[in-house]
């Protein structure tokens, strides 16, 4: 989903910065507030950020298109802390990759932030909260929310490129299909993998920090008790 340096026309670079910057500012505000109110969540924020760090560095092979693509790792953080705080963690990873790996870029940071750090996490969050209300099994919910966030990230990238380069690859719809053929299809097995890994790490988070999950309103106290009973 990384759009490389200079590969979006100026107008679209500016558009996606205008989209992303307010969310990041709000995210920094939320992050500061959370950290000052509940110091005990800091290690969990570090884990969520580190999870994005690890997953977005792994380029996994996909036989759907015979190419490789990386998961995003943002679903965990989105479920735990919401999309605004996740956007801040995501930007840190994108900056690392843009500055040290020349993977992605500064001019495209706004667009890459929008897809990986904002819209993907937002979808994970909305899905998790709705399915949670509807009473879906917790791990299935985490799996689906995360896999959807992963897919959504790559669909947004395809959309961003279709908007910027539609003339060259046919109509808007045809260009979207073209770029989605590169990104979104490749992502299907990768997204499933990401969903499964996130569900597993979530189980360990419950084991070590279930009280914080209740504080953060990720799970109710009764849900935690039920999940812990099934763990043995």
């Amino acid at each position: 989903m990384h759009i490389m340096e200079g590969q979006l026309p100026l107008i679209w670079s500016a558009f996606w910065f205008a989209f992303s910057i307010p969310v990041i500012i709000y995210g920094i505000y939320k992050l500061n507030k959370l950290v000052s109110e509940r110091r005990e969540v800091v290690p969990l924020i570090a884990v969520a950020g580190a999870f994005i760090f690890v997953l977005s560095s792994l380029k996994l092979p996909s036989a759907v298109t015979m190419s490789s693509s990386h998961p995003t790792g943002t679903g965990l953080s989105a479920i735990l802390f919401g999309p605004a705080i996740t956007s801040v963690l995501g930007v840190i990873v994108l900056l690392y990759q843009a500055l040290l790996l020349s993977h992605g870029g500064l001019s495209t940071l706004g667009a890459n932030t929008a897809s990986m750090a904002i819209i993907g996490p937002f979808i994970a969050y909305i899905f998790y909260k709705s399915a949670s209300k509807a009473g879906m099994n917790f791990y299935l919910n985490v799996f689906l929310a995360t896999a959807l966030a992963d897919l959504a990230t790559y669909i947004v990238t395809s959309l961003q490129l279709a908007l910027a380069y539609h003339g060259d690859y046919g109509s808007y719809l045809e260009s979207f299909a073209y770029f989605a053929g590169i990104f979104a299809l490749t992502q299907i097995p990768v997204a499933i993998m990401e969903g499964a890994l996130t569900a597993l790490i979530m189980k360990y988070v419950i084991q070590i920090k279930s009280d914080t999950l209740i504080d953060l309103k990720v799970l109710s106290a009764s849900a935690v008790t039920r999940l812990k009973e099934t763990m043995e």
Binding site: M1, I3, M66, S67, S69, Q187
Partner: peptide
């Protein structure tokens, strides 16, 4: 199995 980012 080259990178999808690279293909784009």
């Amino acid at each position: 199995f080259g990178g999808a980012d690279g293909a784009a």
